[in-house]
Nucleic acid binder design. Structure first.
Lengths: 247, 247
DNA sequence: CGGGTGTTTGAAAGACGTCAACCAGAGTGG
DNA sequence: CCACTCTGGTTGACGTCTTTCAAACACCCG
C-alpha cells in the first residue's frame, strides 16, 4: 500500500512526490540514486553504465548471509530487511534498506547479512570485481563510499546503545523518529510514515517481542502520541517522541 | 615511532597469527607490516613522518564523542574502552581497542565514540588531513582500510545480535570467546584471558548490570566452565563456552 | 463465507534489574 | 605492624519490565 492511499493525507505541506513510475526509466533511476546518497554527478555517471537492473517480489531474497558476495547493490525502489539468524531461529534485523541505500558496500568476501524484499523491490546491481576496479581508479569516489560505510558504522553504534540500554518505549520512539529522518532525506512524507515491515520485523530489529511492539504502539496511540493507520503510523506529538528518543 | 611499527594485520580472511610480543620490538613489528597487503617501501616512508607517539595513563581520554576528529590512531600497547553515553548517564561500551586496532578510521568529521585508557596506553597518532591525503594516492591502502572498516561493521552486527537476542549467559560466553579470538590474533595467551576492563565496563558493553555480570561469571566458575583469577579469567571448558556462544 | 496471515489484548511467568549489605585487596598513615 | 579507608567485586532478597502462553480479532482474498 502506497503512502498516498492512506486515509489520512492532510499533512501540513504536500509530501514530495516519490516519482511513482521510475521502473525501467534510466533517467529517474539515476536521479533517485543521486538524491539519496548525495553522490556527486561525476560519480554517479561513472557508476551508472556498470549497473544492471534487478527486480524482486515480496519475500524474495536478494542475497544471503555468508554467501560469496559477488555484487554490490543500490536500492532504487521498495524496501528490504537485513538480518542475521542464529541456529535456533532467533533473528536480529540489523536494519532496513530504502531507495538510495547501498548493500554490500564494505565488499568483504561474503555478505554480512541476509537481505529480502518487504514488498516489490528494484535495485541496481554491480559486479563486485568491476565495481572494485572502477573505484580503484577514483580516489574521490572510493573515499566517498568509505564515508558512507563510516556512517553506517556510526548508526550501528546507535543501535548498540538502543539495544543495550534503552527501554521498549524509547526503542519504539527512536525507531519511528529515525525512520522519519530517513524518509525526509529521500523526500517522503515526514508526518505519516509508511511501515513496509511487519510488527515481527520491528520486534526483531529492536530486540523486543511482537507483543511488546504491538502493546507499545497501542499505548502511544491511546496517549495521543501517534496514530496507527493502515500500513503505517502518523506522528502526532513530535516533541514527546523526540524527548523519548532522547539522543 | 616509524611506520614500520604499523600493526596492519591482513584481515581480509583467516586471521593471520601474529607474533607474541611485538610491543616495543621494532623488528617484529616490521614483519607485521610485511605480512599485510604489500605496502610498498615508498609508502611507508611517506607515512612515517606523519605519525607521532601518544601516551596515556589509566583513565585518561584519547578523544571524546562528537569532538572534531582531527586524528587517526593506531593502538600500539594497552587497551581502551570505546563508548557513548546518554544525557541521563546510561552508557554503552561499543567495544574495546587493543594493540593493532585503528581508531577514527572511518574519518568522519567527528568521533563517533569516546575512547579512554583502561591502563597505560601508547598509540600512533596521524594528522587526519595528512593521513587522508596520503591514502588518496594509494588505492590499495585505501581499499585495505575500507576492508578493515567493513569488518568492524560486521562485528557491530554481531553485537546487535548479541544485545538484541541473546541471554546473559550467552553474552558473557560470547564475550569471553570473542576476546580469546582477538588475543590469539595478537599473539597473547588464549587460555588465561587478561581482563583489563572492570565488571562495569563489561556490563555496559553487554547491555547488562554489573551484578548480572558478576553473578554469571561466578556461576560459570562454580560450574567449572571458567576459573576467575586476579585480573582475568581462565577458560576451562572451551567446548561448553563455544556451545553457549553458539555462532 | 471460510481460511490464512498478521495484529492486538490479557493473564501469568521469568529473567534481569534494583537495592542493600558484605567482602577483599591495595594503599595510606599513625 | 596494624587499623582505616577506598575502590571494585560479590552475594542476597525483592521488584519489575518484558516475555511467554493463549485467545480473540481484523483484514485480505479466493
Amino acid at each position: 500500500m502506497s503512502i498516498h492511499s492512506l486515509p489520512i493525507v492532510s499533512t501540513a505541506r504536500p509530501p514530495v512526490p516519490v516519482m511513482p513510475s521510475f521502473v525501467g526509466d534510466g533517467f529517474n533511476r539515476v536521479r533517485l540514486v543521486s538524491l539519496s546518497t548525495a553522490l556527486p554527478l561525476a560519480e554517479r555517471d561513472t557508476l551508472e553504465p556498470l549497473s544492471r537492473r534487478v527486480s524482486l517480489d515480496q519475500k524474495e531474497t536478494l542475497f544471503s548471509q555468508d554467501e560469496p558476495a559477488c555484487s554490490v547493490f543500490i536500492v532504487t525502489s521498495g524496501a528490504l530487511r537485513l538480518y542475521r539468524i542464529l541456529p535456533d531461529g532467533r533473528r536480529q534485523v540489523t536494519g532496513f534498506a530504502f531507495p538510495g541505500d547501498f548493500l554490500g558496500l564494505s565488499m568483504l568476501d561474503r555478505f554480512a547479512v541476509s537481505a529480502d524484499a518487504l514488498g516489490p523491490v528494484t535495485a541496481c546491481r554491480f559486479e563486485r570485481l568491476a565495481f572494485r576496479n572502477l573505484v580503484f581508479g577514483q580516489p574521490g569516489l572510493m573515499m566517498h563510499l568509505h564515508e558512507i560505510t563510516g556512517q553506517e558504522l556510526s548508526r550501528a553504534k546507535d543501535m548498540m546503545m538502543l539495544l543495550g540500554r534503552r527501554t521498549a518505549d524509547e526503542r519504539i520512539a527512536s525507531f519511528l523518529t529515525g525512520l522519519q529522518d530517513r524518509y525526509v532525506r529521500i523526500g517522503r512524507s515526514s508526518v505519516t510514515l509508511e511501515l513496509p515491515m511487519g510488527r515481527l520485523d520491528i520486534a526483531d530489529h529492536l530486540g523486543l517481542t511482537i507483543e511488546t511492539v504491538s502493546r507499545t504502539l497501542s499505548r502511544l496511540d491511546r496517549d495521543g502520541c501517534i496514530l496507527i493507520v493502515p500500513g503505517g503510523v502518523r506522528l502526532i506529538d513530535q516533541a514527546r517522541l523526540d524527548r523519548m528518543s532522547a539522543h
